[in-house]
Design a protein around this nucleic acid. Structure first.
Length: 98
DNA sequence: ATCTGGGCGAGCA
DNA sequence: TTGCTCGCCCAGA
């Protein structure tokens, strides 16, 4: 199982209604400062439907980018119960920690 | 609030 | 194989 799959699997641990950060995810798979690497993997996500890559946000609470459009990402999160304001989540406690 | 350098890994020449 | 670019970033100043 390569790094990408480990990342995807970790991401699947994040329950609906919660989100995680690139930083947390990176550390969870053993990367100290591989946040950008995580982002790249999400961008090249081979399973856009089964992998909830929209549940990954920036460590400062901002939504960040998204291959299909940041607005799409924002909408999806809203439907899952995450409150978003000006591109940032309101409830920091919604962030899932591994 | 803005800028900056650092950082990791996949893809392609 | 080596080298370089790019991407949904981060922490510090």
């Amino acid at each position: 199982m390569n790094l990408e799959h480990r990342v995807y699997k970790k991401l699947l641990e994040v329950p609906k209604g919660k989100v995680t950060t690139y930083s947390e995810l990176a550390k969870a798979v053993g990367l100290k400062n591989g946040q950008r690497a995580i982002g790249r993997m999400m961008n090249k996500n081979p399973y856009p439907v089964i992998i909830p890559c929209h549940r990954v946000i920036l460590s400062d609470g901002k939504i960040g980018g998204y291959a299909w459009g940041e607005n799409v990402k924002t909408n999806m999160l809203s439907k899952e119960g995450i409150k978003i304001k000006n591109g940032k989540i309101l409830d920091a406690d919604k962030i899932y920690r591994f």
